[in-house]
Structures are given as structure tokens and as C-alpha cells.
Design a protein around this nucleic acid. Structure first.
Length: 509
DNA sequence: TGAAATGTTGGGGCG
DNA sequence: ACGCCCCAACATTTC
């Protein structure tokens, strides 16, 4: 296994600053319109690419392209979200006067075709940070420039670009704490909110658009997303409401509350951030304002912002390590003696491992498209360390089932739990699913909600049903192995097995 | 943003 | 009164 290259690679991205807005060239009702290519920035507010297009003085054509063959195309749950998010965004663009254009197919081909059809003189977009996406954007930018089209890209997804946050010696951070200390001191690139566009000039002739319902982004049979709507309101409006409600409520107890899955103590902003319905700069500004007004507990608000920091750190890693989604950053982990345990993986995916906190998490994921972060760590530790299934399998399952699936956060977090990432949890940190359950779901309320077949068990046994006396199980209507599974592995044994596996790669490291 | 094993201390029961 | 043991509670180390 060769060590991954870890040189900064700013040269790989397009490096426009986006600060020039060419006000001199802004002839009103310019003949050639400007295209705003929307990707994971599905919002009107604080969207620098859209802002630049508007300020160019040209007519604005917003477009979204669905490319099912693109690397890391949205998974199943994310497609549900995307449908509703595009619906909300279409409505917003229509009310601004320039409807959102939908196209499906190869992204570069679609965009070039649209430029040609509309005679667009400029294309604006917000940057992406995954190597394969950067390559697409860079090639497209070169092609369009050759054709005489002005192309500009912006930072719409991060507080700061990954190449802006540098260590004292000019490298990039590989440890979270100093990274966040540095980024926090810098603050967002746009400290003040830019004006929100209230009107957009439409092109003389609107280009053709697909019909969203023809994309069939919603599941049909079975409709596994049936309950998603109870939990979520995709779209920028829903995002802003989440943030406001959070800062006015649970945001005040976030430091302690964030670890408790048995209640609503988190912001649940993750899917909104993943689709760019709200940007981290907006979250930063609003949270800072609430702190300054004394409207929110300062310590808790800072803890909350540091979670935005983890998202930034993940993008920092993704940008500097091409293979983050696929290969361990610590290359010795490629030789770890993983098991090919299809039955174990299946039990984990279905929430039938026999460990209640694990099963509750996996079922919350399936039913709502989301899982509490503390529980994500527990289920990930279980898959990797108790079952010895490669972390990439868990990453792939999360990609398909999470409405907040995000390339950077998903891959960086799986590597973190596996112990093979930058600043990762040490390999010997193996969660005990019973003690984690007792600590963070002390009454078993979370388990009872998502694993109803053991809901009648008393608190004492709710996280370890196999330890309950026969009469207690009987009274609760539980028959282990029938109404609820026996544990798929013995944790104590599995822990020893995992540690001996790490011994092997330590020698070869 | 662990858990388990091992070590240390101190109180209390008891002969 | 004293030593001995047990063991909880806490601290340290090891994985």
C-alpha cells in the first residue's frame, strides 16, 4: 500500500476569487443571459454564485442538472430530499421572476447544450471539493472559456476555502482542535450577510425544463420514505426555521444535550446543510448574533458552532486527500484482517443485531433518513470493531439511507471511528453498546421508540435483554431468538478479536 | 467524542 | 486495640 500523496493541491481547483463583478459591463437587458449552475447550494439567500449572476446585469437562468451516473450521485434517501428541495426552490425562483430549469443527463453535456441554446455569455457556480467533481468542473470551465464564455466560481459551501486555513508552517491541519481554533479566529469569508435578491431578470425566451415528477426521485413501492415527511421540511425556509427554533430552545443545553438521543436536543440542520439550503456562514452569523444579544447560552452555542467546524474539517481532509471516501488515510489499515460477514452486515443494516441501542439507531435511520450523532458513533463502532466489517460498507449504507449524506462528513467520520483517519479515535477505543446505551439513553426511551418489540422490558434490562431473568422476559412478551434476536456477537469476545486484529497491522506498520 | 484491567486507598466487619 | 480481609471508590495503565 503506497502512502497517499498529501501535498496541498490548490492548483487542481479553479481559483477565481469571484471578487470582480464587472459592473462596467453590466449593460441592462444584456442580450446574452447568465447561467447559474446550482449543485449543492439550493438556496437564494447568501448564494455568491447567484449574487454574482444578478450583479452582472444579465438575465439569470438558474439550472439544476441531475446526473445519475456522476460519482457519488445522491443515494435513495437523498433523492427523496432532493425532490422536495427542488420543489421548494422552483417555487422561490418562479416568484423571483426567473424559473428554475431542470435537466437530466451528463452534467457537462447538459450545461454546454444549455449555453448553446440560450446564447449564455457567462456561467456561475459555487465550488465543490471532491477530486472527481473538481475535475469535471475544471474541464468544463476550460471548454467554456475556449468557447468565449465567462466562467466564475465561488465559495458557497464553507466558512473558508480548504486552502485558506493553513498551519503556522504553511501546511494544512490534520488535527481538528488547532484547525478549528484557527478557522474560528478567521471567521467566515463573508462576515456580513449579502442582500437577498428580490427579483431576477428572466431570459427573453425561457429554455425548456424537465418536469420534476418525471425524474421519479420519490420511492414508490415500497414507499420506505412514508414517514420522512413527519420529520422533515426540505427547503431553505425549513432550514431557517430549524436554526431559529434550535437557538431559541435546545441550543441552550446543547453542550450536555447533544449526546442524548432520547429527546430533541440537536439542530437537525445536517440535511439542509448537505443540500446547501442554508450555508455555514448563515449559521455562523445567526448563532454569533444570538450570542451577542445574550439570547442563547454562550458555551452551548460555541459547542454547536464547533460542530460546523467538524464539517469544515471534513472538507479540509477531503480536499487534501483525494481518496478519502475509498481508502484509509493511514495506509497500514488497508491490511487489517476484515471479515467478509454478509450475515452480520445484513443484521446491522436491518437493525437486528440483538444490541438494542444499535438496532434502535439503524431503525431510526431507515424510518426517518437520519440518526442521532452519538448513535452513529455507536453503530459505526459496532460494525467496524464488533463485526469487523470494512468501514467502507457502513459508509456506503449511510450514503444510501441518510437524507444528510455528504461526501466529506460521511467519509471523514467513518475513517474517524475506524481509527484510520486524520486525528482519528485511537484504534483501541471500542464502544460497549450496553454501557453507551445506559449512559446516553438512561431510561431506554430511545430504544423503546424504535425497537417496540422490547418496549415492555424494565429499564434495568432494556439495553441488555439477554441478561434478564426468564420471568422478566416472559412478562415483557420477549422471546429471545424469536421476537427479538440474540446478540449476533458476544461483545467482550468481539472486543478481544478486534484488538488482536490491530496487533497484526501494528507489526506491519 | 472509551473500556477494561490493574493499582491504591480507606472504611468497616470481624476475630 | 489490632491486624486482617473484603470491597467499594477512585486513580492509573493498558489495550
Amino acid at each position: 500500500m503506497t502512502k497517499k500523496q498529501n501535498a496541498p493541491r490548490q492548483s487542481k481547483t479553479d481559483s477565481n476569487t469571484g471578487s470582480k463583478t464587472q459592473s462596467a459591463a453590466s449593460s441592462p437587458a444584456a442580450a446574452s443571459p447568465a447561467i447559474v449552475w446550482l449543485r449543492n447550494d439550493l438556496r437564494i439567500e447568501d448564494n455568491p454564485a447567484l449574487q454574482a449572476a444578478r450583479e452582472s446585469g444579465a438575465a439569470v437562468i438558474p439550472v439544476f442538472i441531475l446526473d445519475d451516473d456522476a460519482p457519488h450521485a445522491p443515494g435513495g434517501a437523498a433523492r427523496w430530499w432532493l425532490h422536495h428541495s427542488l420543489e421548494a426552490l422552483s417555487e422561490q425562483f418562479s416568484s423571483l421572476g426567473s424559473p428554475l430549469i431542470l435537466r437530466r443527463g451528463d452534467r457537462a453535456d447538459c450545461l454546454k447544450a444549455l449555453v448553446e441554446e440560450t446564447g449564455a455569455g457567462a456561467v456561475f457556480w459555487n465550488r465543490r471539493y471532491y477530486a472527481e467533481h473538481i475535475a469535471v468542473d475544471k474541464a468544463l470551465k476550460a471548454d467554456l472559456a475556449d468557447a468565449g464564455v465567462r466562467v466564475e466560481s465561488f465559495n458557497g459551501a464553507l466558512l473558508r476555502e480548504p486552502w485558506e486555513v493553513k498551519t503556522g508552517s504553511g501546511g494544512f491541519y490534520k488535527v481538528y482542535s488547532p484547525f478549528w481554533r484557527s478557522l474560528r479566529a478567521m471567521g467566515p469569508a463573508r462576515p456580513d450577510a449579502p442582500p437577498t435578491p428580490r427579483k431576477l431578470a428572466p431570459p427573453e425566451k425561457a429554455p425548456a425544463s424537465d418536469d420534476l415528477s418525471d425524474w421519479r426521485l420519490l420511492p414508490e413501492k415500497p414507499d420506505w420514505a412514508a414517514a420522512f415527511g413527519e420529520t422533515w421540511t426540505p427547503g431553505a425556509k425549513g432550514a431557517r426555521k430549524r436554526l431559529r427554533d434550535f437557538l431559541n430552545g435546545p441550543g441552550n443545553q446543547y453542550t450536555d444535550g447533544r449526546n442524548r438521543p432520547d429527546g430533541e436536543f440537536t439542530s437537525r440542520l445536517s440535511p439542509h446543510l448537505a443540500f446547501g439550503e442554508i450555508g455555514p456562514a448563515q449559521v455562523w452569523r445567526e448563532t454569533r448574533a444570538a450570542i451577542d444579544e445574550g439570547a442563547v447560552d454562550e458555551k452551548s452555542a460555541e459547542t454547536f458552532l464547533s460542530e460546523i467546524g467538524w464539517r469544515e474539517f471534513s472538507y479540509n481532509l477531503l480536499f487534501h486527500f483525494d481518496a478519502l471516501p475509498d481508502e484509509p488515510m493511514r495506509s497500514e489499515f488497508a491490511d487489517y484482517p476484515w471479515r467478509d460477514d454478509k450475515a452480520g452486515l445484513r443484521a446491522w443494516q436491518k437493525g437486528e443485531t440483538g444490541y438494542p441501542i444499535v438496532d434502535a439507531g439503524m431503525r431510526q435511520l431507515w424510518r426517518t433518513g437520519w440518526m442521532h450523532n452519538r448513535v452513529r458513533m455507536i453503530v459505526a463502532s459496532f460494525l467496524i470493531k464488533d463485526l469487523l466489517v470494512p468501514w467502507q460498507e457502513g459508509e456506503a449504507w449511510f450514503w444510501d439511507t441518510l437524507v444528510d449524506a455528504d461526501i466529506a462528513s460521511n467519509s471523514a467520520s467513518w475513517q474517524w471511528v475506524a481509527g484510520c483517519g486524520a486525528d482519528a479515535a485511537p484504534y483501541f477505543r471500542i464502544f460497549n453498546p450496553v454501557s453507551q446505551g445506559e449512559k446516553f439513553d438512561p431510561d431506554g426511551a430511545y430504544v423503546r421508540r424504535f425497537v417496540p418489540e422490547i418496549a415492555a422490558l424494565p429499564k434495568k434490562y432494556i439495553h441488555a435483554p439477554w441478561t434478564a431473568p426468564a420471568d422478566v422476559l416472559k412478562d415483557a412478551g420477549v422471546t429471545l431468538g424469536q421476537t427479538y434476536p440474540e446478540p449476533v456477537v458476544d461483545h467482550a469476545e468481539a472486543r478481544r478479536r478486534a484488538l488482536s486484529g490491530y496487533d497484526k497491522i501494528k507489526k506491519s506498520a
